[in-house]
């Protein structure tokens, strides 16, 4: 859908740069005009960044955050997908389990922090547990929906060719549900990334979330706060973009035709 003629090639580069430049200029001059001492200007953020990189702190914080996300997320995938497939496959079981899932799901992973600390103590495992919780429920719920959305005729075709239930699940239902499952995995990865940052602000003493809260508490270094936020945004974007590459492979491409 477009309102005007197809944009020219240069416009694809020009407009984003233009808007970003305006944004940064606006930020810079607001800081200058209001003469605030606390909120950093873009230049100060850049300097703060350089300082952190020199110290090598930044690298460790990034690796710590990524490691927690990776472990918690993979655990959620490894448990959530089989469980979701099973619940979708046996609607009677799902009816029984669903209410419990629905009550647990809206509990913010952050609200689990006190319990996470009881279970695992302050440290990596508490943060990993929070990431797991944040990613687990969306994956399970979408898998159930994805399986029950598989058109009846695919299942019938599978039965017709004499497949056992296990093979129908692996050769028909799973591939048919895969595009939807992949979307939920991407969303869950995003949630994992949101949660780890929040978890690190409370439950551990390293990582990008800790960097934010620590920079603020020890000496009001808001240049580092904003710098860390931008870094979180960029890494999140990179994770999302990488994941979208998976959605382009051929056996699932059919499920994404409507999306741009």
């Amino acid at each position: 859908m477009s309102t005007m003629a197809q944009p020219r090639k240069w416009e694809y580069v020009f407009w984003p740069l233009f808007a970003t430049a305006i944004f940064i200029a606006f930020w810079h001059y607001t800081v200058v005009w209001t003469a605030t001492k606390i909120f950093p200007s873009p230049l100060e953020v850049e300097r703060g960044f350089a300082e952190l990189t020199h110290k090598g702190v930044l690298y460790h914080d990034i690796v710590d955050s990524l490691r927690r996300v990776a472990v918690g997320y993979l655990a959620a995938v490894a448990i959530g997908i089989p469980l979701g497939l099973m619940l979708g496959w046996y609607p009677t079981v799902n009816q029984i389990v669903n209410p419990v899932v629905q009550i647990l799901r809206p509990i913010s992973p952050i609200a689990w922090i006190p319990l996470a600390i009881i279970f695992f103590g302050v440290g990596d495992y508490a943060a990993i547990f929070l990431v797991f919780l944040g990613a687990f429920f969306p994956i399970v719920v979408t898998c159930v929906a994805a399986v029950s959305n598989v058109p009846l005729i695919y299942r019938r075709a599978g039965r017709n060719f004499g497949l056992t239930p296990a093979r129908i699940l692996s050769r028909v239902v799973f591939p048919a549900a895969l595009p939807q499952i992949l979307v939920s995995l991407r969303v869950a990865l995003g949630i994992g990334w949101l949660v780890v940052v929040a978890g690190e602000m409370i439950a551990v003493t390293s990582g990008l979330g800790f960097l934010i809260i620590d920079s603020r508490n020890s000496g009001k270094r808001y240049d580092l706060v904003v710098g860390a936020m931008i870094l979180i945004g960029v890494i999140g974007l990179v994770l999302d973009t990488l994941f979208r590459q998976i959605e382009k492979i051929k056996p699932v491409r059919w499920g994404f035709r409507d999306e741009s």
Binding site: Y154, R156, A157, N160, G162, L178, P251
Partner: peptide
């Protein structure tokens, strides 16, 4: 008693598996 590979049901082209 149930579907059987000796007798195959052909749906409209909707029955083709899009992932294969």
């Amino acid at each position: 008693r149930g579907p059987d590979p000796r007798r195959i049901f052909v749906f409209q082209e909707r029955g083709v598996f899009p992932w294969l």
